[in-house]
Design a protein around this nucleic acid. Structure first.
Lengths: 200, 200
DNA sequence: TCGTTCACTTAACACTGTTAACCTGACTTT
DNA sequence: AAAGTCAGGTTAACAGTGTTAAGTGAACGA
């Protein structure tokens, strides 16, 4: 008759995620999380060193998911250009389908981010490393014309993030259709990297 | 013998800016600003409705400066491609030379940004409108091959912001040189828009 | 001199993250 | 069975936050 017995730690994460999605970061408080669970605020400190660590755990979760979905997107895909496209679109699609999780990753700013352990960034580099290797393949196959694949991979990442963040921060002109903007932008970004093959 | 008589309002803005630059957004407090000036915290409310409004005023300032510097960059430049490049580089250069001011513009997140009056975004669109017109010229002159200049202008903006924000948020690999990254990325972004002219 | 107004202050409310100290029940050891 | 240990919580408190309501005093016009 033993119930699933969800641990308090898990319930804290779950509730934090919920509030983060519904009310945003700035109104997230330890007492609010605790109250929702029906426990005292200080109990959270039994499982997380402080609020920053709690949020970092959530960030890690999301980063992990993003990395995994990028990796899955190229599974079984052989063609280099198709692998290139798959990575880019899986990044975008993750942001579109999991706006909350994507936002968590980039919500905590450089301001607080200084405290985020550098080591953990390596996890985030999993997807990026994959992109880098695809770019190197592309160069070998004469599809791309770049001398610094490492920088190129970061450039793409930065550009994609820029597009997503402009959409999320609602800084887009109201006359512009969200999906059309994403479509065009991504197309543009990929075009910048591929050698334009003129029909010979 | 009348001293310059800097108004309290001005001193509040000045001090806020100073703290924002030195200590970041998350540790900026009304009482801290007031204490530095030597006035009570509530005095700030005589000049600003609340903390958000105070920060919005700072954002506006920075947006104004950015717009102006973009406008100045194309003054007297006739060639369309050179105008295109001038706008892009002045955006990047503004971010590089005024990291604090640039960060202020994007520091307040979508979270709080909802309260930022939409009307004020129009000011931000001054630089963007200029870019859009240059793109339209580029299309006319056969230098670019795009069917949606409005979207294209936003795309560039988004990509540039992505590059800058990756650098500012220190999410760049330590092996990558900051300036080289910016140089390469911007080059890449421009390449995506220009028709590659092969030496015939 | 009275009244008003401006520029500011004090006190207070309801919140925040976080720490120190305490409690309580279950499991072990003697 | 009694005593000890320890996990898993609790309450109280500190120092800080944004913000509001009410009060103060000096300057000024009538």
């Amino acid at each position: 008759m033993s119930e699933p017995e969800i641990s308090l730690r898990e319930r804290i994460l779950e509730t934090s995620r919920k509030f983060l999605f519904s009310d945003g970061y700035s109104s997230l408080s330890m007492r609010k999380i605790a109250k929702e669970i029906g426990v005292s605020a200080t109990s959270i400190y039994l499982y997380f060193e402080n609020k920053d660590h709690l949020i970092h755990t959530l960030i890690e979760e999301s980063v992990e998911e993003l990395s995994t979905s990028i990796e899955q997107s190229v599974e079984g895909v052989e063609d280099t250009i198709k692998r290139f496209e798959a990575i880019i679109w899986s990044y975008i699609r993750f942001a579109q389908h999991n706006p909350e999780k994507y936002q968590i990753i980039y919500m905590v700013h450089s301001d607080r981010m200084a405290r985020y352990p550098k080591e953990k960034f390596r996890k985030a580099r999993r997807g990026y490393a994959l992109l880098e290797s695809v770019i190197m393949d592309g160069i070998k196959e004469g599809l791309m014309e770049l001398d610094k694949p490492m920088i190129a991979a970061y450039t793409i990442w930065a550009q994609l993030h820029g597009v997503v963040s402009v959409v999320f921060n609602q800084r887009l002109d109201s006359r512009i259709d969200r999906d059309e903007f994403i479509e065009e932008s991504v197309e543009q970004i990929m075009q910048g990297f591929l050698i334009r093959i003129t029909t010979t």
